[in-house]
């Protein structure tokens, strides 16, 4: 140490305190994230089977096989998650705006209501969509009573035409899976948006308006750019878990809506092809990281990373 001995002893104590504070979290990350990830990486490059054991052979071909076989499921997962994220944004932004600036003394009540679904299990919440979208479900019987069955059939045909439905039912379709994803991840979009929008200085809209910006232009040039940190935070919290999600597809989808999470689940727990499952997990991770990096860079909010 270049400093004198006295300075060194004075500094000694404060020096280890930050590390001590960091240690529990660091230890947790090492044991439950770094080590499993390394083990997963090694697993993906091994060959063998469950009965005779595995050995590390650097078998990169597993990755090629995984991608060539399961790219449709991967692509589908990204598409469903992307659509669900877009929907949560479209629903969540006005909702967050309302809670932040228009709800007055009901603000806290509304915030609790946004989080309220978390008090029920994820599984039950998703199952509930079966009773909503089912052939004899809430939505159909309600539309039936309102003599709007024709509208329902029209919508079903539309979904069929754009590849999001079978054309004759709502449940067990991509549409149902996306509905489930949107519903389940909405709070993850609303909360970061709310935190951001609540801090927006609304006097800036007056300033924009004073400087010849119509309400639409004021939103586009002032409010939206200032909302971006919340939008980026919300989309990441929604898109990343939604891509790897499989519950919604299992409960609300069909064989045609299989997502990458289901494939990984099946390979690990039923087919018992550990290297393939590990390779798929790694591919999913890398794809998400690359997408997120380019997205955040495009949105110009690098300070989030």
């Amino acid at each position: 140490m270049p400093d004198g001995v006295a300075a060194a002893t004075v500094r000694k104590r404060p020096n280890w305190v930050p590390y001590a504070l960091l240690a529990p979290g660091l230890l947790w990350l090492v044991v439950f994230f770094v080590l499993p990830t390394l083990s997963l990486a090694s697993q993906s490059l091994q060959t063998g089977d469950v009965y005779n054991g595995y050995s590390l052979t650097w078998h990169v071909q597993t990755y090629v096989d995984a991608l060539s076989t399961y790219w449709p499921q991967l692509l589908r997962s990204l598409m469903y998650a992307g659509l669900a994220t877009l929907l949560t944004l479209l629903l969540g932004y006005p909702l967050a705006w309302f809670v932040a600036h228009r709800s007055g003394r009901w603000k806290n009540v509304l915030l609790v209501l946004v989080i309220a679904p978390f008090y029920t299990s994820f599984l039950i919440r998703t199952l509930a969509w079966q009773t909503i979208l089912g052939d004899q479900g809430l939505l159909t019987s309600l539309l039936d009573r309102l003599h709007l069955t024709w509208a329902l059939h029209g919508f079903e045909s539309f979904l069929g035409a754009v590849g999001l439905g079978s054309g004759s039912q709502l449940l067990y379709s991509p549409f149902a899976v996306i509905c489930g994803l949107t519903y389940n991840f909405l709070p993850f979009m609303v909360l970061p948006l709310y935190a951001n929008i609540e801090r927006l200085d609304l006097r800036l809209t007056e300033a924009a308006s004073d400087l010849y910006a119509s309400p639409v232009q004021a939103f586009r040039r002032v409010i939206w750019p200032l909302s971006l940190p919340g939008v980026v935070g919300g989309t990441l919290l929604t898109f990343i878990p939604a891509t790897g999600d499989y519950i919604n597809s299992v409960l609300l989808g069909s064989a045609k809506t299989t997502m990458i999470g289901q494939v990984i689940d099946a390979q690990f727990l039923r087919v018992l092809d550990y290297p393939l499952a590990a390779a798929l997990s790694f591919i999913l991770m890398v794809v998400i990281i690359v997408l997120v990096m380019s997205y955040v860079r495009r949105a110009g909010t690098e300070e989030l990373l």
């Binding site: 006097r203 800036l204 300033a207 308006s209 004073d210 400087l211 910006a213 119509s214 002032v222």
Partner: peptide, 20 residues
């Protein structure tokens, strides 16, 4: 006329400069 239609500009007490 709406504020954005008037040829009138304001220096606000809070300045209201656009932070971004």
């Amino acid at each position: 006329l709406k504020p954005y239609q008037r040829h009138v500009n304001t220096v606000f007490q809070s300045y209201a400069l656009f932070p971004h």
